[in-house]
C-alpha cells in the first residue's frame, strides 16, 4: 500500500512538472515571444484553458503528502520555509497576472499584470529548482540559496522555458509569435519528458526515505477506498481539457 501511495505522489509531482511546466515556461517567455499586446493575448489565450487543470496537480500533491506521508509533510515544508514562502508568493503573483490582466481594458493595466505573470512564473521555476536540490540534499538549513541550489533553479527554468516554447509552437503552429515554426504532438511529449526529468530524478533518489515515512495501514486503506474509485473521473476530466482546447480558436477570458 505504501508503494501505491508513493506511486501516486510520484505521478503527481512528475505530472505537475510535465503539465504546469509549459505554463510556467511560457509565462517566463511572455515578454520575449509576445512583443505586442495582441501577441501576448494569443500566447496567454493558448495556455489559459490548461492552467486551472495543471496547477491543481500541486494542490493534490501536497494533499497526498499530508494524507499519506504526514510526518514528511511537516518536515519537508517547514524545512524549506523561505523557499516555500517564495514559491507561494510567486504562484499567487503568476495567477493574479492571469486572472486580472483582461479585467480592465487599458494597456498599462494589462502590462502590469503581464509583468506579474512573467515574474511569478520565473519565481516558480527558480524556487522549484532550489527546492528539489534542497530536498535531495536532505534539507540543509544553511544552504537553501547556495550555488548548487541556484544552479538547480536555472536548470528547471531552462527546461520549463524549452517546454513552454514547444507548447506555443504546437498550439499556435506557424504563427509569428513562435517565429513561424511548428511542433508536432510527439515533440510536445518529448519536451514534457525533459521538463519532468528533474522531478523524476528527485523522486527516484528519495524513494526509500519517503517509503519509510508512510502513514499506518489503517489511514492508507481509508484513502485508497475513497480515492481510487474516482481516479477514472479525474483522468477523464483532464483528457476532456486536452480534447477541447488543443486546437481551434483561442479563448479570451485570461
Amino acid at each position: 500500500m505504501e508503494i501505491l501511495w508513493f506511486g501516486t505522489l510520484a505521478v503527481l509531482l512528475i505530472g505537475y512538472f510535465a503539465l504546469e511546466g509549459f505554463d510556467i515556461g511560457l509565462g517566463m517567455l511572455l515578454p520575449v515571444l509576445g512583443r505586442t499586446p495582441a501577441d501576448r493575448d494569443r500566447l496567454v489565450g493558448a495556455m489559459g484553458p490548461f492552467v486551472l487543470a495543471n496547477e491543481v496537480w500541486l494542490v493534490a500533491l501536497v494533499g497526498t503528502l499530508f494524507g499519506a506521508f504526514p510526518i514528511l509533510e511537516g518536515r519537508v515544508i517547514s524545512g524549506l520555509y523561505p523557499l516555500v514562502v517564495a514559491l507561494l508568493l510567486s504562484w499567487i503573483l503568476r495567477d493574479a497576472g492571469l486572472w486580472f490582466r483582461r479585467r480592465v481594458g487599458g494597456a498599462s493595466w494589462r502590462s502590469v499584470w503581464d509583468a506579474a505573470l512573467c515574474l511569478g512564473s520565473a519565481g516558480l521555476a527558480l524556487t522549484w529548482g532550489m527546492a528539489l536540490i534542497a530536498i535531495v540534499r536532505g534539507l540543509p538549513q544553511d544552504a537553501l540559496f547556495d550555488p548548487p541550489g541556484i544552479a538547480g533553479g536555472i536548470v528547471v527554468a531552462a527546461v520549463f522555458a524549452f517546454h513552454g516554447w514547444t507548447f506555443a509552437a504546437w498550439r499556435l503552429p506557424g504563427e509569428p509569435v513562435v517565429g513561424g515554426r511548428r511542433r508536432s504532438s510527439p515533440a510536445l511529449l518529448g519536451s514534457a519528458c525533459v521538463a519532468a526529468a528533474p522531478a523524476a530524478v528527485a523522486m527516484a533518489a528519495l524513494a526509500s526515505p519517503i517509503l519509510d515515512h508512510a502513514a499506518p495501514a489503517a489511514t492508507l486503506t481509508v484513502l485508497s477506498v475513497m480515492v481510487l474509485p474516482c481516479v477514472p473521473i479525474m483522468v477523464g476530466a483532464q483528457l476532456w481539457i486536452w480534447r477541447t482546447f488543443a486546437r481551434g480558436a483561442v479563448p479570451t477570458f485570461f
Binding site: A60, G63, C230, W240
Partner: peptide, 17 residues
C-alpha cells in the same frame, strides 16, 4: 491528513478542472 487529502484529490482537483 486524510480528509484534507480527499479534499484536494476528490473535490478541488475536479472542481478546478
Amino acid at each position: 491528513g486524510a480528509p484534507l487529502a480527499m479534499e484536494t484529490l476528490l473535490a478541488f482537483f475536479l472542481e478546478s478542472t
